[in-house]
Design a protein around this nucleic acid. Sequence first.
DNA 1: GTCTAATCTCTCC
DNA 2: GTCCGACTCATTCGG
DNA 3: CCGAATGAGTCGGACGGAGAGATTAGAC
Length: 613
Amino acid sequence: MIRLSRALERTKSSRGRLDKERALADAFALIGRDSLDEDSAGSLRVAVRLATGAVTASAPIGVGFSLMQEVIIAETGWDSEVVRACSRTCGDMAEAFGLLMQRVRGADRRSGVSLSDVARTFELLAQASSRAHKRRHLDELFHRATPLEAKYLAKVILGSLRTGALEGVVENAIARAFAQPLEEVRRAATLVTDPGELAVLARDGRLAEASMSIGAPVAFMLATPIETVATTLSPAQWTVEDKYDGVRAQLHLHDGEAIVFARGLERVTETFPEVARAAAERGRGRTFAIDGELLAVGEGDKPRPFMALQQRLGRKAPTAATLAATPVAFIAYDLLAIDGKILLEFPLADRRALLAELTDALDCPEIRLSPSTPLLDALDPLDPLETDALSEPTPELDVAEVARRLDGAFAAARGRGHEGLVLKRNDAPYEAGRRGQSWLKVKRAFATLDVVITAAEEGHGRRAGVLSDYTFAVWRDEGDARALVNVGKAYSGLTDVEIDDMTRRLTALTLGRYGGARLVRPEIVLEVAFDGLQRSKRHKSGFALRFPRIVRIRTDKTAEQADDVATVEKLFASQVGAGHREEGEAKTRGRGRRGMTEKGETTRQLGLFGEEK
DNA sequence: GTCTAATCTCTCC
DNA sequence: GTCCGACTCATTCGG
DNA sequence: CCGAATGAGTCGGACGGAGAGATTAGAC
């Protein structure tokens, strides 16, 4: 573990990615070749997993901020105030742990822990259910660890390694360490879910053995967001599909057993029993692996927003009532393998054709084919001239014209209740695990709204020392008085200069006064962009902006804000439906000041509303 | 002792 | 999921 | 022809709301 910790330290301090890669490669080579442990393959497996920030191959260990803080207090002997203050200064609790550990007598002369110790402890943690048991396992581990080891173990456990090297760099490092072609490593990485296993295959020169098999998940192919079409896009080569507001999933049928894999590649079959049952029953005697989206459907098979689906997510054994209340359909849009044949290298057009045959044969409402249209058709389906042009070989369309017509197609998709559009290249293979240029998701500029800053929190990590996460509000007229109503939060979209400026203004007024201060800077007005509204439990007004970001800051401009509440309410009504408003408000109860976020660390509410407790 | 509320962690988007 | 900035690598530009 | 400037592409790391499930703390 000490070797790995040193390598991670070196990785963290070097700026260039190539340097990081070399540091990791050296460590992997050393650990994989002649580990201090008898089991060098096992050590390599653990080392590589830790380097990518993963604790175990699959099971979560159920240790987070709170428990880790307890351990740090116990291990270093400092009280929670010191630990918190130190974390705030470092911007990272694990970093603080390392520093405080150095001052523990004899800690730097400890022999340290082995990688197999670490692996064993993590396994025990994953199995342990009670907090007390977890605590015991953690104490045992950290009591033997050196300060450097403790720091990196804590980083991994807290999920923020921040060395500037994750999967991509680690894959390069594996290739370098064991002199394997990078392409081979990358290819295998999309098929082997555990990076540790990948490293062992590379070390033994067995990368070629990695192949897709039905029943084992493949990394999902992702789409690159675009605002408008690129100049080079030739419409005839592309197909359009609606972009669904659901959960990405893979549906495998192998040996009569249907398995559903979620985005993180873990099994969620029990969560969606109706889909699995349909696959098993209707697909009897066949094998396949379909890529698609789990979508909540309502009356008349209308798609429902993600919020509805969320009530099904994470349910280990949904009750009949839940299944009935939130029916789900698997919308199939790609075929990765069928009847033993792997299709990843096939062009999309061929995969789609086979998929259509399959869904046709399955013929059930739980598994449906996602409609797809040639881009030329989708651009202007109502224009008969264009339909004629289809029969012509590669009709030419001006880029601006394509972009303009894409707007119409986009609006049509929204009209069908979907999130937007995805463009896919007909001749592209399935690029597992990559966010390539073969799939493009079309996004639109967000609507904007002027709001007022009412609170800010201290940032952590790279944002340590500045205020971030601004809570904002709009004005509401109440008789003669005007009140501010919280509507949401934003945390990015500011340049450094703007953050500094904002920090100065806010710091001067609010820092040192937190703890219930209801101070507001109404003259600081932000223009916030957002892509929709959601009902919110956290905000008193009962809704929140979804994915807000700050577009622009202005000051001393409050007079024009009077209509903002009306604007929000109108948008809210159109997004969520007027009927939900009361429900949202009734259910909503301010959580009050928690002092810390889930991640804990150093975030504090600095200024708050009078309305909130 | 039992029931309920709060807290914590994880993981979808 | 969104967004931003840093880094790499390839291409173009200018002396 | 070669080095500097530029641009595209990739990657990592800042973060959000929300719900479920497990455990623990608290109320009666």
